[in-house]
Design a protein around this nucleic acid. Structure first.
Ligand SMILES: [Mn+2]
Ligand SMILES: [Mn+2]
Ligand SMILES: [Mn+2]
Ligand SMILES: [Mn+2]
Lengths: 218, 218
DNA sequence: AAATATTTTTAGTCTTGACTAAAAATTTAT
DNA sequence: ATAAATTTTTAGTCAAGACTAAAAATATTT
C-alpha cells in the first residue's frame, strides 16, 4: 500500500497529537496542527480509515491502527535522520533543518534511508534532542521535563525543545542554550511565571512561554 | 516564481529533447518522453508559456526561454549531484540511483544543494558520465561518440551511456563495461550491425543496439 | 490538387486535496 | 431541561494534472 505526501503528513500529525493526549484525536485538533480546515480533515480521515491506518467513529475523533502507527514512525524516522545529516554533514544549524526535512521525509526508498542511517552511524537523537526510531519503529523514550517545572535552585541539563521553529531556536542560540547546556533555576516570578536562570555563570530571565518549550533532565 | 514537480519534469524533458534535436520540440515528442498524452502536454505547455519559461506557437512546438533553460539545468544539477551522493556515500550502484534521484531532484533548498556540492567536493560528472552543471548552470560538454561509430581496430575509453535504465546498466556490469573501461573494436558485422569488442583481453560480441548506447572517447 | 494520414488542439470528464457555507450533532451554560 | 455555543459533518466548488474522444490543422501520398 502506497501513501501520498498528504496522507503521510496526516498520519504524522495524528501520531504526534496522540503522544500528548492519549485519547481519540479530534478533527479540530488535526485541522489546527496541519493548518487546514476541519472539513478537509473529515474528508481525509475517511480515506485513511478506508486504508485501515486509523479507526474513525463519527463525532468521536480518530485513533491510529498499528499499521498507521508504523507508517507515521517511518516518516518520523526519515525526518529526523535527514535532520542529522543536514547538521552533521552539510553545515546546517538546528534552526535551518526542519523545512528541508519536511520535504525529504517523503522520499520513498528503503535502501536510501537505511544506508543513510548506516552512513550517519545509527544516531539515536536528532539535532533537537528527539529520538530516532530504528528500522522496526522502536525508540527509547527519554526522561525529560519542562524547564518550567523545575523549582528554585534546582539544576538540569537541556535535552530537547518543544518547539522546533526557527524563531525559537534562534532565540535559544542567542542566549547560549543548546543541547547539553547546564541550567540552574535561580528564582521564579509568580506574577508572570518568568524564570531567572544561571547559564555559564551568567544570570538571565526568560519568560514562562520560553520555559515551557525547553526540556530538561535533572 | 515557484515551479511544481510536474512543471520541473516538463522543463527537464524539453531541455533534454532540445539538446539532441535543435529545432522546436513537438507535443508528441514531449508526450512520448514523459509517457503521457499529447493533450496533457498541450495543457501544460500553455501554462509554462504563461510563466515565460518557454515560447509556444500553436502547431509548431516549443522552445525554452533562458529562464526555462536555467530552471531545467537547476533540476539536472540536483539530479546528478544526488546520484553522486548515492553512489559515493550510500553504497548505491549506478543502476540503482536514477529512480531515487528523480524524487530528490525536486527538493527545494539552494543551501541544501550547494552544501551537498561542497560535501561531494564539486564533482564534474555523475555516475553515468554526464556532466554536472555548476551553480550558474555552466558545464563542460565532453567530447564523445557512440561506440557504434568506431571503425575496426579503433580503441576508445567508455565515458558515458545513452540509456540510464537499470536493465542496460546491469547488462554493462555483467560484461565488465564501466566508466573508464578501455574497449577495442575487433570487427563489425555489416549484416546486423553487431560489434566484436576486446575488453580486458577478452573478446565478446555486442548487438548494434548496445553499441548505440555506449559513449566512447578516443 | 485531392485524398489520406498524422499531429495537435479542444472539449469534456475524473481524481486528489483543498475550500466555503450550511446542516447536524454534541457540549456547555443558563 | 432548554437554550446557546461549539464541533463536526455534509454539500457543493475549485484548481492541478491527468485522461478520452472528437475536431481542426498540418503533412504526406496518390
Ligand atoms: Mn523537524
Ligand atoms: Mn527535529
Ligand atoms: Mn539519472
Ligand atoms: Mn545520471
Amino acid at each position: 500500500m502506497m501513501f501520498t505526501l498528504s496522507e503521510e503528513n496526516y498520519l504524522k500529525a495524528i501520531f504526534h497529537l496522540q503522544t500528548v493526549s492519549g485519547k481519540g484525536i479530534s478533527t479540530n485538533a488535526i485541522a489546527k496542527k496541519l493548518e487546514t480546515k476541519a472539513s478537509s480533515v473529515t474528508d481525509m480521515i475517511k480515506k485513511l480509515a478506508d486504508k485501515e491506518v486509523l479507526t474513525y467513529i463519527k463525532y468521536q475523533g480518530v485513533s491510529l491502527t498499528d499499521l498507521g502507527r508504523k507508517i507515521a514512525l517511518g516518516v518520523i524516522r526519515k525526518h529526523r535522520l535527514w535532520e542529522v545529516f543536514l547538521v552533521e554533514k552539510l553545515n546546517f544549524s538546528w534552526d535551518e533543518v526542519h523545512d528541508v526535512a519536511e520535504q525529504l521525509e517523503h522520499i520513498k526508498s528503503t535502501k536510501l534511508i537505511n544506508e543513510l542511517d548506516t552512513f550517519l552511524e545509527f544516531p539515536k537523537m536528532d539535532p533537537h534532542g528527539d529520538p530516532i526510531p530504528d528500522k522496526e519503529g522502536k525508540f527509547q523514550k527519554i526522561e525529560k521535563k519542562l524547564l518550567s517545572t523545575l523549582k528554585e535552585n534546582q539544576l538540569g541539563v537541556c535535552v530537547g525543545v518543544n518547539d522546533s521553529s526557527s524563531e525559537f531556536l534562534k532565540y535559544l542560540d542567542r542566549y547560549q542554550i543548546s543541547l547539553g547546556q547546564k541550567i540552574r533555576v535561580v528564582s521564579k516570578e509568580s506574577f508572570d511565571g518568568s524564570v531567572t536562570i544561571l547559564i555559564n555563570n551568567k544570570e538571565m530571565s526568560i519568560s514562562q512561554k520560553i520555559a515551557n518549550n525547553i526540556y530538561i533532565q535533572s
